[in-house]
Amino acid sequence: MDKKRRSFLVVMAQAVAASAMGGSIVAAFVEENKDKPLTLRPPGALPEKDFIKTCIRCGLCAEACKNRDNPMIIDGEKMVTLKMGAPGDSVPIGTPYFIPRDVPCYMCDDIPCMNACPTGALTPDMCKNDEGKVAIDYAKMGVAVIDPKSCIAYWGLQCTACYRACPELDKAIRIEWKQNERTGKHAYRIPVVYEDYCTGCGMCEHACVTEKPAIKVFPRDVFLGKPGDRYVKGWDTKDQQRIKNASTKTTTETGRSKENPIEELNQGVKWNDE
């Protein structure tokens, strides 16, 4: 190999090495930073994985939120829900989010943030009901979850702060009555969240009277479970639709069950044949 060719190849290899090194540092950082499952997104947000790809971080949603038509003003201060993630905020950098305990989503009827989004990271498609009607009431920003241990209504005290704060009044949070056996003559009035109606706006978390809120909003993915195909409500035709494509196999197959049980049990056993 002549000298020129060799030096060209070495320089190329150097560039590739430098790119690989820089690239993996950035990639590692991005992987770490984009994986923040507790981030609460504005209404109409795509599923997190697609949202991260699609949001261009322009801040038009946050701008629309700040300059909306009917801002909530508390103590002379305009309540701005949406923030843009900065380094150190524990959310993917540059993307919109909100912290309900600070400022919840006031669920504007005209959904200014969603309608301002140029990329489709926030889209009416993710904010409609089964009939295809778009309204803020069908937003799925998150779901409220109660910690019964710190909720004072569960102690038997009179509260209902979250119930009264909820914009989906008597739908997303309902009060259930139960006898208080400790006193024998009082009732518990316990808030219960109905996730079908909960938009995740966080008005309840904002209103909760305890030092650290006893009701909090989590992204739906984080909190909601999934029964899977094995369990179905036999009395509910809609639920039966859900398992239409379920597999009919009834046995569990693992790596182990492929082998005959005797072989499996005797694995590694040496018989003393002599």
């Binding site: 991005v30 984009k34 790809k53 950098i93």
Partner: peptide, 12 residues
Amino acid sequence: VSFVVGAAAYEF
């Protein structure tokens, strides 16, 4: 990197 991680990498 953007292709691999599935996000606009430099924007982070």
